[in-house]
Design a protein around this nucleic acid. Structure first.
Lengths: 167, 167
DNA sequence: CCGTGCGTTCAATACGGACTAAACGGATTG
DNA sequence: CAATCCGTTTAGTCCGTATTGAACGCACGG
């Protein structure tokens, strides 16, 4: 089969960049590319479509799409009258990312705080330092939550155009 | 050489946990351990001390300590009358981490926003979606900055013992 | 029932990056 | 200078994990 001349549209560049960003965040590059692809497409896309468009295996598409779903950045739909599932980018994917960050921070705060409680009195100063550290984590988690809430107005006006899809 | 019976204090557990947290954040495990160690110790410690305490090579200690310094989570001091440098945990290491996060978000927002501008009119809807995405990044970065500022009262009292080392 | 299309799971591979030992360079001390 | 003592650089190893091809399970359609 002949070459596709590797024509690179701005959309391609964006998708590639999303992969890099995701990678820098410590995640799989391909998950970022899928998110980018779904953002560009807008409408739901199947695993087969992703695989072909991004030149990856179906297995990789499946794994990473489910990862995105787990992170709450992508919605999985199973439209009636269609063979398989389909995935679709959410309006505000990064909100879910922040949410996850808040959760992790809270968990870290708890873990560290508990450990600090075990410090013996001989290390009272260290115990204080570590507790402060844990406190910062916890307070930051709270702050994140407030930010999420502020950005996603649930009902009371001020809510951009983001209408809520009644579940 | 004889075994050290692997006696594990709560402090050790904390240090180990810091390594795991750092790893989950996508960084080198050892950098987290160093930060944990410095938090426990409180006072400045040299590369040699870190290497021995954490059972790692000097090279690794050097590399990861400098990484922490780069991230602004650790302070490098060169006390007069001492042979080498020493590192010391900052009062609020995680503030620097958030700061870095804000910077990355801003960079991401810029990159994505620029790429979106290149989208042709045939993809106007996608362009809008991507722009929204970039906007969220940017606004979140601003929010992070405000949070940092709120947590670190710059001059007006409350300034703990953190005197500034005039350079 | 068989054949087809789909998503997931599994074992194997490839790749990247952490970590190390050893060499290097620069300053200090006798 | 010679002898150390540091910190950094370098080249190489090792380990984790992303990614894949192939096998599997399942639902539908003939």
């Amino acid at each position: 089969m002949g070459y596709v001349p590797a024509m690179t549209t701005p959309m391609h560049t964006f998708i590639e960049q999303m992969g890099l960003i995701f990678r820098d965040d410590g995640g799989p590059r391909i998950a970022g590319q899928i998110l980018g692809y779904l953002l560009v497409e807008g409408a739901p896309r199947t695993l087969g479509q992703m695989a072909k468009a991004l030149k990856i295996s179906k297995a990789s598409a499946s794994t990473n799409a489910r990862l995105l779903e787990l992170k709450g950045m992508v919605l999985r739909t199973s439209p009636v009258g269609q063979r398989g599932d389909a995935y679709q980018a959410l309006d505000r994917p990064s909100a879910a990312a922040i949410q996850a960050l808040a959760t992790r921070f809270r968990a870290n705060a708890d873990t560290i705080g508990t450990l600090a409680d075990d410090f013996p009195d001989s290390h009272a100063a260290a115990r204080e330092r570590v507790r402060h550290y844990a406190d910062f984590y916890r307070e930051t988690a709270v702050f994140f939550d407030e930010w999420i809430e502020m950005m996603a107005p649930p009902a009371t006006g001020a809510g951009r155009k983001g209408r809520r899809v009644t579940p």
